[in-house]
Design a protein around this nucleic acid. Sequence first.
RNA 1: GGGAGCAUAGCUCAGCUGGUUAGAGCACAUGCCUUACAAGCAUGGGGUCACAGGUUCAAGUCCUGUUGUUCCCACCA
Length: 872
Amino acid sequence: MKELPKIYDPKQVESRIYRYWMDGHWFHAERDPDKKPFTIVIPPPNVTGQLHLGHAFDETIQDVLTRWKRMSGYATLWLPGVDHAGIATQIKVEEVLRKEGLTRFDLGREKFLERVWDWKNQYGNRIVEQLKTLGSSCDWDRQRFTMDAQCAKAVREAFCSLYEKGYIYKGKRIINWCPHCTTALSDAEVEYVEKKGFFWHIRYPLTDGSGSLEVATTRPETMLGDSAVAVNPEDPRYKDLIGKTVTLPLVGREIPIVGDEHADMEFGTGCVKITPCHDPNDFEVGLRHDLPQYLMLDGEGRITGGYKWDGMDRYEARKAIVAELEEQGYLVSIEPCTHNVGTCYRCHNDVEPLASDQWFVKMEPLAKEAIRVVEDGEVRFVPDRFAKTYLNWMHNVRDWCISRQLWWGHQIPVWYCEDCGKMTVAREDPCECAHCHSKRIHQDSDVLDTWFSSALWPFSTLGWPEKTEDLDYFYPTDVLVTGYDIIFFWVARMIFSGCEHTKKPPFHTVLIHGLIRDPQGKKMSKSAGNGVDPIQVINDYGADALRFNIITGNSPGNDMRFYPERCEAMRNFANKLWNASRFVMMNLSIEKNQLPETLALEDKWILSKFNDLTREVGENMDKYELGIAAQKIYDFIWDSLCDWYIELCKARLSGEDKAANIQAQKVLLYVLTETLKLLHPFMPFITEEIYQALPHEGEALMIQDYPVWREELSFPAESERLEKVLDAIGAIRSRRSEMNVPPSRRPHLFLTTEDPAAFESGRDYLCRMAMLENMTILPAAPEDAGGMVTIATRFAVCYLPMNELVDMEKERARLTKELEKNRGFLENQYRKLANEKFISRAPAAVVQTEKDRAQALEALIANLEESLRQLG
RNA sequence: GGGAGCAUAGCUCAGCUGGUUAGAGCACAUGCCUUACAAGCAUGGGGUCACAGGUUCAAGUCCUGUUGUUCCCACCA
């Protein structure tokens, strides 16, 4: 046993535990055949910007869950992902390259990847530091995973197996292309900005000379790529023209008029020019009507395709083309408008939709199973409303474009033969074409979407596609913890990938949490400069306080604003626990944690209360209601344990009675130790530190059993009796405060009650806590009670000879007011009980509590009336 | 356009499947350095639960509508 320092210093406490952790022998995930496996998966922190508090959420929740599960007899493991920020990292690297006047092409792939690794390591280490400081107990080796051979193997297996089933195909599709960065962007990387622009109305003459159609466009230069004009087949103005052709101005190309739903009769002229290569909708229209595709822009946004504007920038060409249209009389009008323009989120230049060859995963067969497992409840979302978000997306899912024109990531395992032109798809790098055995082959230069490998995370980290012991023991995993912003990107893809590759959903529960926002409610981001550094918060208040702050005070799935003041409150709570523990230790002479043979009334009360708490906490944790569980433990420690029980014990601890002293010590030590266990998952550092200082068995608090409800510690009747005394203490304190009685004034208390035994056994602490000289229990109301202050409670009437402090008129007024108030309540009760429908329809238990309540009110009113009568 | 969330004390938020006189922290007021803790103790003030209907013996809680607000998805020729 050792002493706790007088001052609680989170830094000191937490650095000490951190050293233990570094030794590694407490916090190691392991297989244990005697225990049930429990696995958690958390999403990768986004390392685009500086790390901020938002990322602490996943880690904290999963760590609370892991510790709790471990203490509840599970072998636990969590799979943290910190390596999946491929695109973001590349962007960072490109920024640096640009500063150095280089492009990735100058460096070559190898050098470029080296540079990426630098960044990755830098950010990765920062994350490790954060995780450690938060107290996370993960298995670190799994972090350095994504780009290593194991991950690459899994990715190739997944790709090839999907390909062999015909679920992967290559096709043309419209992608977002940044002509400045000369790269494709995912939908998520495109920022839509409202910009001022124009509608150019252009006349397309019918080829047979019988008139013309008018189309409107915001990008007139794309007319070079037009291959049709669409009208709505229901449109009475144009439906007779379907099948005829128009002649494309300036180009002279003859293009058909097609009927398609895409043309909105209400919008513009009702005619739409169709440019399959440069607009996603037009692309679809083109497929439906089997239209030719004319590519008219190159990768740097210049006109291409054999026109006289070839090589000209698209905006220059726009001016030239509009001028020529006007000159030749095809331009009908120019109308100013505002429209949303997609821009590159890096360089903020306009992106161009461009048709190009991409790899796709066919989603329909995969989505079917992914929908089923959620609908059948094999995968459950917590809170369940997020299942709707998921299903909504999955029902409308489009084929997944998995190729990226980046240098960072897993290269697509496809080789093209330069002789026969055929493709070879292989798990191992081939040295020859599978078809003609030519050695002249080259690998596809595209890489896979970062989410393709992320989707395999729950099983690839465990060794898949090999049949490993880890995979066998920990898969399927149990809980995925993540923010709602990542449901589409990752959760959905993990689910269908797991179902497809392992034939099992990768987890049974998806625990969704909200986002942490700044005090103004804004999302934390680097550009806004409002990110809060978790390490800084930890330095100021401690990791325990931060963890507790994050876990409590909001409901699952809702966003939470971060206030440093709330952290302070949590730090104060830790301090409270620290000091309570110090108090227990100062009074400790026993060396073994063991409950005494006999228990005092207040012992039974606190044990009973603690016992109920364990049951409630267990129930809340089972339902993933971490915040509620933590709040209940907080309330128990501060209110029940510190404010009441420790105060109640002081009489015995400072008294002459040796046996009573030991008895109190034993109960105090027991309750404190068990409470530390309950709190440990939420505040691992301080609880461990205190536990180590107390007489204890076993190496660490973390590996103790989590407390559960025990029949032999349940004393409901005794608890109720003590509550009666506490109620009286509260009432007397309240009256004293109202009357401004100085603490030094210690009157003698006379009281009448129906439960004298309860008050007799509580004499000492009643006098101490209500600041009384002594107490006499009377069999009946005193004769001369008119000369005393009377305080009527539900279980006793207290008489205090302090009437010189009281203005009798004010006292009468107060009593009358209180009487009236309670009569009002009672009247309500009577009305309720007189209601025939209530009696017959409400459950019996509810009716009974209402009856009890009425009875208690009757007693209280009788007491008040008696007091008034005696006042005269 | 489709979907979801939120609206409760001055501030930030709890309030689970309807059932006491709606709670907590912070802030505020009053009195206390009571030998664990002033990062504390005791006591107190403060709410027409956004608005309007409905269901029910009973509504902060369930249903419908309205208003305000936040977010996601899609579209914008």
